[in-house]
Design a protein around this nucleic acid. Sequence first.
DNA 1: TAGATTGTTAATCGATTAACAATC
DNA 2: TAGATTGTTAATCGATTAACAATC
Lengths: 205, 205
Amino acid sequence: MNADKIPDIIIGRLPIYLRALQRLSDKGVQNTSSQELGDMIGISAAQIRKDISQFGEFGKQGTGYSIPFLIERLQSILKVNRIWDVIIVGMGDMGHALARYNGFANRGFKVTMLFDNDPKKIGQKVNNLEIFSMDVLSEKIKQNRIKVAMLTVPASAAQEVSNQLVKAGVKAILNYAPTHLNVPPDVRVQHIDPATHLQRMTYYL
Amino acid sequence: MNADKIPDIIIGRLPIYLRALQRLSDKGVQNTSSQELGDMIGISAAQIRKDISQFGEFGKQGTGYSIPFLIERLQSILKVNRIWDVIIVGMGDMGHALARYNGFANRGFKVTMLFDNDPKKIGQKVNNLEIFSMDVLSEKIKQNRIKVAMLTVPASAAQEVSNQLVKAGVKAILNYAPTHLNVPPDVRVQHIDPATHLQRMTYYL
DNA sequence: TAGATTGTTAATCGATTAACAATC
DNA sequence: TAGATTGTTAATCGATTAACAATC
């Protein structure tokens, strides 16, 4: 393991590699090469080898990489060789869809609590999980040592709720609100904004 | 307007600038500087000036940028100074949430058609839009000259449906399926995979 | 005018690619 | 052994930052 600081751009590619490897594994494939993996996901073989080699010598000359082994290594590096409890804050349509999403299984995450401030929603269940009041958000986060949250409140409330999350100890926020969040440097934010993603493509049309 | 090829990484930042500018505009602010805008979204002032200057001289020394003017320019560059009709393919929870999402207004997009292959869903309405059969997907895309699609089918069907979209003339796909899509070079794909986004953050926890 | 801020140049920094010895 | 493919080095390519003349 290289102790140097790994560039974030490399960290960002590891989940892509992992996803492709798990897909191969599901098909029963046992081994692959940087060439094959690269062809699958549109990344050069040299870059894949370079990225992976930041963390150790996981391949073998002549035969490439053992898929189960490389999956295990990447999961360990990304710290998804465990299950992170994740909360969803804001039970509109998007929060609802995420609560019922089955794509987190085997990828290191489990949605464990839901929150909303609408009295009509509080106490209801989605996917067998009760919706809690925002009043108990901080308390529940601390109690359960929650580190990861998905934020699906309206843009107008996002910064305020983000502050609450951070104050209670959340360190990773997947932000679905179409607004930038200001957080301390030890908190990570990833943005999902469909309009922004679409606008990035219309330029080329 | 610079006729050189603009790097994609710059194009990717323009929607972020545009979103921040629209937020300022909504608050009634008329002018801003690269410094202020950069502070808002965590990007250096120099980079913002450099990015914007690829497309023309939109600012004024001493006073910065006129927000309405810069919004108009960015919208024009990104081709969102019009409304793109967008279709949603796959009316599960995610497709449903996107069909009811109100974040596309004023950002250049309008969801106009929904598709699913489940006979029980076909003919139903979501947000006043009828769900069509996949059998008429190609025909409807061609008829309405649809260029932009959101793909919310299961991963196992994503490549196959993507092929249909591309063949019918779609040039921009927002892919919610957790799998890489192979498309011709003239088709753009953006990926939204919550598990991948979360995995990119857990490394730092 | 004086202060502020752009657009741009040059310098720095970082990422990607090509190539190949090592070796399975 | 011969062929394949890694890990790594050096070269190339591209992106970011710092600095400042121009000018509103």
